[in-house]
């Protein structure tokens, strides 16, 4: 690994408070191409502009706090390498997520997403067997050896509630009440057979039929949730139930 640093210009969306006029500020810094966008943002905050606000916590994709738009595409800044989004002497444009209320600069209020996840009682932890974890995307669960005491392993689910899918979704762009990819995925994971309340919600005005198959949610999901696949599977399940193919 070379220690050569790159000169990169960050073009960052600035806005103080939800009602003020946004503008962009440019910061040119020296940064290692193997570092992550979030490291650059933190560097800028530490040495260039203390007034910058941005969300972050775990820096390794388990918390979902650092979602933002990098060159127009939704990314977790903590896992996006500088080398993957620009070149030496290049630029990186950073904007807050779309379809959420702005708090300031790169910070949005993810509250609406968390509240909807709460309303569909999305599980905070799940049995390992309920969540396949092999490979990219949805694949059958790999056999995991039983625990020493025969109990189930418990794990945190794939969805980290980062809001990238909601930001990328064209339906969420103009309908704030649409449940959105993450929430529909949370309904799918729980099963509509076991949860008639979720079946009613998924088959409602804010449910699965409002998806326009842009598949942007799955394209930007950093955590293998594949919400688009889950929405389509929900459709299949709902059609089967309503047509009584399956009780």
């Amino acid at each position: 690994m070379s220690d050569e640093k790159w000169t990169v210009t960050f073009i960052i969306h600035r806005q103080k408070g939800p009602d003020s006029q946004p503008h962009f500020d440019e910061f040119t810094i020296e940064i290692h191409p193997e570092e992550f966008v979030l490291d650059g943002v933190e560097y800028i905050w530490a040495y260039k502009d203390r007034s910058l606000v941005f969300r972050h916590a775990c820096h390794h994709t388990t918390c979902g706090a650092c979602g933002m738009r990098v060159n127009g595409v939704e990314k977790l800044a903590c896992m996006t390498k500088i080398a993957d989004v620009t070149q030496d002497g290049g630029k990186i444009k950073l904007e807050p997520l779309r379809n959420f209320p702005i708090v300031g600069d790169l910070v949005v209020d993810l509250g609406p997403l968390y509240r909807k996840m709460h309303e569909v009682h999305a599980p905070e932890v799940i049995p390992l067997c309920a969540s396949p974890w092999e490979g990219e995307g949805i694949k059958p669960p790999q056999e995991t050896p039983k625990r020493e005491d025969g109990e189930e392993y418990i794990r945190l689910p794939d969805c980290i509630e980062c809001g990238l899918c909601v930001s990328a979704c064209p339906t969420a762009a103009s309908d704030a009440e649409y449940l959105g990819p993450a929430v529909l995925a949370a309904i799918h994971i729980q099963g509509i057979d076991e949860n008639p309340d979720l079946l009613a919600l998924a088959d409602s005005r804010e449910g699965v039929w409002r998806c326009h198959s842009a598949y942007e949610c799955s394209a930007v999901c950093p955590s293998n949730v594949d919400p688009a696949w889950r929405i389509m599977d929900l459709r299949k399940q709902i059609i089967a139930r309503r047509l009584k193919f399956k009780k």
């Binding site: 379809n99 409602s204 005005r205 459709r235």
Partner: peptide, 19 residues
């Protein structure tokens, strides 16, 4: 994004979609 209404709203459903 806004909060979901706890009560599912009518206006779109499986039948309209199938049609």
């Amino acid at each position: 994004m806004q909060d979901a209404t706890a009560v599912p709203k009518a206006g779109e459903n499986v039948w309209l979609w199938l049609t």
